[in-house]
Amino acid sequence: MASEGADVDADVVTDVEKDDEKKGAGGSPDAAAAARAAGPGDGETVRVDSWIWSVRLVKTRSMGATACRGGHVRVNGERVKPAYAVRVGDEVRLRHAGRERVVVVKRVIRKRVGPSVAVECFVDNSPPPPPREAVAPAGIRDRGAGRPTKRDRRELERLRDLSRPQSGPDGS
Protein backbone atom coordinates (compact mmCIF):
# COMPACT_ATOMS: atom_id res chain seq x y z
CA MET A 1 0.00 0.00 0.00
CA ALA A 2 2.72 2.48 0.94
CA SER A 3 4.55 1.85 -2.32
CA GLU A 4 1.39 2.65 -4.31
CA GLY A 5 1.18 6.08 -2.66
CA ALA A 6 4.83 6.72 -3.45
CA ASP A 7 4.22 5.79 -7.11
CA VAL A 8 1.29 8.21 -7.31
CA ASP A 9 3.41 11.01 -5.77
CA ALA A 10 6.21 10.31 -8.24
CA ASP A 11 3.71 10.49 -11.14
CA VAL A 12 2.35 13.80 -9.85
CA VAL A 13 5.86 15.26 -9.59
CA THR A 14 6.64 14.04 -13.10
CA ASP A 15 3.42 15.63 -14.43
CA VAL A 16 4.29 18.93 -12.73
CA GLU A 17 7.77 18.86 -14.26
CA LYS A 18 6.26 18.18 -17.70
CA ASP A 19 3.88 21.13 -17.27
CA ASP A 20 6.85 23.32 -16.29
CA GLU A 21 8.66 22.24 -19.45
CA LYS A 22 5.63 23.02 -21.62
CA LYS A 23 4.99 26.43 -20.06
CA GLY A 24 8.62 27.16 -19.44
CA ALA A 25 9.83 29.30 -16.60
CA GLY A 26 10.02 32.74 -18.09
CA GLY A 27 8.29 31.66 -21.27
CA SER A 28 10.72 29.13 -22.74
CA PRO A 29 11.73 25.51 -22.09
CA ASP A 30 15.35 26.69 -21.82
CA ALA A 31 14.45 28.92 -18.85
CA ALA A 32 12.70 26.03 -17.10
CA ALA A 33 15.75 23.85 -17.64
CA ALA A 34 17.98 26.63 -16.31
CA ALA A 35 15.87 26.94 -13.15
CA ARG A 36 16.03 23.19 -12.54
CA ALA A 37 19.77 23.14 -13.17
CA ALA A 38 20.27 26.00 -10.72
CA GLY A 39 18.53 24.08 -7.95
CA PRO A 40 20.52 22.21 -5.31
CA GLY A 41 21.22 18.51 -5.63
CA ASP A 42 19.82 15.87 -3.27
CA GLY A 43 20.68 16.64 0.33
CA GLU A 44 22.31 19.98 -0.51
CA THR A 45 21.29 23.21 1.16
CA VAL A 46 21.63 26.78 -0.06
CA ARG A 47 23.19 29.57 1.98
CA VAL A 48 21.08 32.70 2.48
CA ASP A 49 23.79 35.00 1.07
CA SER A 50 24.04 32.83 -2.03
CA TRP A 51 20.26 32.67 -2.45
CA ILE A 52 19.68 36.43 -2.25
CA TRP A 53 22.44 36.85 -4.84
CA SER A 54 20.98 34.09 -7.04
CA VAL A 55 17.54 35.72 -7.17
CA ARG A 56 19.10 39.13 -7.87
CA LEU A 57 18.24 40.93 -4.62
CA VAL A 58 21.91 42.00 -4.32
CA LYS A 59 24.58 42.47 -6.99
CA THR A 60 27.28 40.21 -5.55
CA ARG A 61 27.41 37.30 -3.14
CA SER A 62 29.90 39.16 -0.99
CA MET A 63 27.38 42.04 -0.69
CA GLY A 64 24.86 39.47 0.52
CA ALA A 65 27.32 38.12 3.08
CA THR A 66 28.14 41.66 4.25
CA ALA A 67 24.43 42.43 4.62
CA CYS A 68 23.99 39.28 6.74
CA ARG A 69 26.95 40.14 8.96
CA GLY A 70 25.62 43.67 9.38
CA GLY A 71 22.23 42.42 10.56
CA HIS A 72 20.38 43.59 7.44
CA VAL A 73 19.03 40.11 6.58
CA ARG A 74 16.35 38.39 8.65
CA VAL A 75 14.81 35.01 7.96
CA ASN A 76 11.48 34.41 9.69
CA GLY A 77 12.17 37.39 11.96
CA GLU A 78 15.62 36.24 13.13
CA ARG A 79 18.94 37.82 12.20
CA VAL A 80 20.99 35.24 10.34
CA LYS A 81 24.60 34.62 9.44
CA PRO A 82 25.61 34.21 5.77
CA ALA A 83 25.76 30.41 6.06
CA TYR A 84 22.15 30.02 7.24
CA ALA A 85 20.31 27.42 5.12
CA VAL A 86 17.23 28.76 3.31
CA ARG A 87 14.16 26.56 2.80
CA VAL A 88 11.00 26.91 0.74
CA GLY A 89 8.41 28.96 2.64
CA ASP A 90 10.92 31.07 4.60
CA GLU A 91 10.28 34.82 4.77
CA VAL A 92 13.45 36.76 3.98
CA ARG A 93 13.68 40.47 4.89
CA LEU A 94 16.56 42.42 3.37
CA ARG A 95 17.36 46.08 4.02
CA HIS A 96 19.36 47.24 1.01
CA ALA A 97 19.77 50.47 -0.96
CA GLY A 98 17.55 52.48 1.35
CA ARG A 99 14.50 50.20 1.30
CA GLU A 100 13.32 46.95 2.78
CA ARG A 101 12.57 43.95 0.59
CA VAL A 102 10.26 41.26 2.00
CA VAL A 103 10.19 38.04 -0.01
CA VAL A 104 8.90 34.52 0.58
CA VAL A 105 11.02 31.71 -0.84
CA LYS A 106 9.16 29.71 -3.53
CA ARG A 107 12.11 27.87 -5.04
CA VAL A 108 15.62 27.32 -3.71
CA ILE A 109 18.39 27.86 -6.25
CA ARG A 110 22.16 28.04 -5.87
CA LYS A 111 23.25 29.55 -9.18
CA ARG A 112 22.48 33.03 -10.48
CA VAL A 113 19.79 32.96 -13.15
CA GLY A 114 18.17 35.46 -15.49
CA PRO A 115 15.69 38.00 -14.13
CA SER A 116 12.66 36.25 -15.62
CA VAL A 117 13.57 32.99 -13.88
CA ALA A 118 14.66 34.72 -10.66
CA VAL A 119 11.24 36.36 -10.22
CA GLU A 120 9.62 32.93 -10.16
CA CYS A 121 11.77 31.85 -7.20
CA PHE A 122 10.13 34.17 -4.67
CA VAL A 123 6.93 36.04 -3.84
CA ASP A 124 7.61 39.76 -3.34
CA ASN A 125 5.68 41.21 -0.39
CA SER A 126 7.76 44.39 -0.20
CA PRO A 127 6.09 47.70 0.50
CA PRO A 128 6.09 49.94 -2.56
CA PRO A 129 8.98 52.40 -2.77
CA PRO A 130 8.18 55.99 -1.81
CA PRO A 131 7.33 58.28 -4.72
CA ARG A 132 10.24 60.33 -6.04
CA GLU A 133 8.56 63.57 -5.01
CA ALA A 134 8.49 62.40 -1.37
CA VAL A 135 12.27 61.96 -1.28
CA ALA A 136 13.78 65.34 -0.43
CA PRO A 137 16.43 66.42 -2.92
CA ALA A 138 19.67 67.32 -1.19
CA GLY A 139 21.18 70.51 -2.58
CA ILE A 140 20.12 70.45 -6.22
CA ARG A 141 21.84 73.17 -8.22
CA ASP A 142 21.08 74.46 -11.68
CA ARG A 143 23.15 72.84 -14.39
CA GLY A 144 26.08 75.05 -15.35
CA ALA A 145 25.88 77.13 -12.16
CA GLY A 146 29.48 76.25 -11.36
CA ARG A 147 31.05 75.49 -8.04
CA PRO A 148 29.03 76.49 -4.94
CA THR A 149 30.18 79.65 -3.20
CA LYS A 150 31.05 79.74 0.48
CA ARG A 151 27.61 81.20 1.15
CA ASP A 152 25.95 78.33 -0.80
CA ARG A 153 27.95 75.75 1.15
CA ARG A 154 26.91 77.30 4.48
CA GLU A 155 23.25 77.18 3.43
CA LEU A 156 23.59 73.53 2.38
CA GLU A 157 25.21 72.64 5.72
CA ARG A 158 22.44 74.46 7.59
CA LEU A 159 19.79 72.52 5.63
CA ARG A 160 21.55 69.23 6.31
CA ASP A 161 21.72 70.00 10.03
CA LEU A 162 17.99 70.76 10.09
CA SER A 163 17.18 67.38 8.56
CA ARG A 164 19.26 65.48 11.16
CA PRO A 165 17.74 64.53 14.49
CA GLN A 166 18.92 66.90 17.21
CA SER A 167 21.10 65.35 19.90
CA GLY A 168 20.87 66.13 23.60
CA PRO A 169 23.46 68.09 25.64
CA ASP A 170 25.41 64.91 26.44
CA GLY A 171 25.75 64.03 22.72
CA SER A 172 23.19 61.19 22.71
Rank of each mutant, 00 (worst) to 15 (best):
E78C: 01
R95N: 14
V55I: 13
G71N: 08
R107L: 02
K81Q: 10
A67W: 14
G64P: 06
H96P: 00
V92C: 09
R93C: 13
R112I: 00
A83M: 01
V92Y: 09
S116N: 05
R87K: 15
A67T: 13
L57A: 11
R110T: 01
S54D: 02
H96F: 05
S54W: 06
V55S: 15
V58Y: 03
D49F: 05
G64S: 08
S62N: 10
V80W: 06
K111Y: 03
V104F: 13
V46W: 15
G114H: 02
Y84N: 11
S62K: 13
I52Y: 11
R87N: 14
V117Q: 10
V108Q: 07
K106G: 02
V46G: 14
N76H: 09
V108Y: 04
V92Q: 11
L94Y: 05
S50T: 08
I109Q: 15
D90P: 02
R110F: 01
S54G: 04
L94K: 06
W53Q: 09
R56I: 08
S50H: 07
Y84R: 15
A85V: 10
E100F: 00
K59M: 12
V105L: 03
T60C: 02
N76T: 02
G70I: 00
G98K: 13
R93N: 14
V105W: 01
R101P: 00
R95S: 14
R101F: 13
D49W: 02
W53V: 03
V103A: 13
S62T: 09
S62L: 07
A85M: 11
V58C: 06
V113S: 06
V92F: 11
V105N: 01
R99I: 04
V103E: 07
A85E: 15
D90F: 13
V117M: 03
V88W: 07
V86H: 12
V73I: 13
T60K: 08
G98D: 06
R110M: 02
K81H: 09
R69P: 00
V86I: 12
R61Y: 09
T66P: 00
M63R: 12
R107F: 03
N76R: 05
G114F: 01
V48L: 09
V113H: 05
R79L: 08
P115M: 01
S62H: 07
V103P: 01
R101I: 03
I109G: 08
K106F: 02
R47Y: 06
I52K: 11
R99T: 03
H96D: 00
R87F: 05
A85D: 15
H72K: 11
G70W: 01
G98Y: 11
K81Y: 03
Y84T: 04
K81E: 09
R93I: 15
I52V: 06
V80N: 14
K111P: 00
V55R: 10
M63T: 07
S50E: 13
R79N: 10
A83Y: 05
H72C: 10
T60D: 05
G77Y: 15
A67R: 14
I109E: 14
D90E: 12
R112Y: 10
G71M: 10
V117I: 03
V92D: 15
R112Q: 11
P115C: 02
H96C: 00
S50G: 07
